[in-house]
Design a protein around this nucleic acid. Sequence first.
DNA 1: CTAATTGCAAAAGCTTTGCAGCGCA
DNA 2: TGCGCTGCAAAGCTTTTGCAATTAG
Lengths: 135, 135
Amino acid sequence: MSKENTELRKAGLKATLPRIRILEVLESSDNRHLSAEDIYKHLITSGEDVGLATVYRVLTQFESAGIVMRHNFEEGHAVYEITPDDHHDHMVCLETGKVIEFHDEMIEKRQESIATEMGYEIVDHSMVLYVKPIK
Amino acid sequence: MSKENTELRKAGLKATLPRIRILEVLESSDNRHLSAEDIYKHLITSGEDVGLATVYRVLTQFESAGIVMRHNFEEGHAVYEITPDDHHDHMVCLETGKVIEFHDEMIEKRQESIATEMGYEIVDHSMVLYVKPIK
DNA sequence: CTAATTGCAAAAGCTTTGCAGCGCA
DNA sequence: TGCGCTGCAAAGCTTTTGCAATTAG
């Protein structure tokens, strides 16, 4: 039994072909951050017979199950990435579209402090730095 | 000549009624962050004869002119706020929908350092803390 | 076997665009 | 007066949903 198969079972999802294929694409792609359309095209090109609606449905299920995380770096469409073991934030290069991941403990700590001071606790957060290369 | 009128001229936009009204709503609303739909409904309720398409067009122009900033706190729709004099980030309460603004110099400094270390310079950034009240 | 899942097509929701007429400078 | 701007309606995009057919366990 494959790794994907086990992962799906653990999430309480039947190990169907579309789900396994989508998981494989997410795990093996060069680009860690993919849109539903990206995944759909990838599968169609590979000769898989899958519907775009299924890709959306499966990604939504994966998100609920904690298998993937959804991001809205640019408006218009969401991108998904396999949920990383350790939390990180993103830097998006406006010239190349490249996404760089980073983690900074100092910032994380400050975020917690700020929320606490205001009487709130953080459920989730998003931080994206839109950057360009230094010439 | 009104304050709105001057502001529009400065941005190279004709001071038309729809633009002035939209600017007024953004400046006078209790809620600092409004969607195109919010502004549209507000104007219709006030008896103004404006089209939703115009609201979208005007907001896009305002964004280009730097008069407003566009945010995507929750997916599905954007919200706009008058561009603040000083930069701030946002905390969104998941229970009440309330948006709290804050600014932290330490975090800003770290963000700059991180980008520089990677060979980039920050063009813009977004940081949103999704929170809930401490019981 | 049978409940979950899928593909297709249609619909939904936000936003943009084409166009003829209206209004600001 | 002239060009910019507007309202309306239609189109565009991403994403969701209804449904009959298919499939995993």
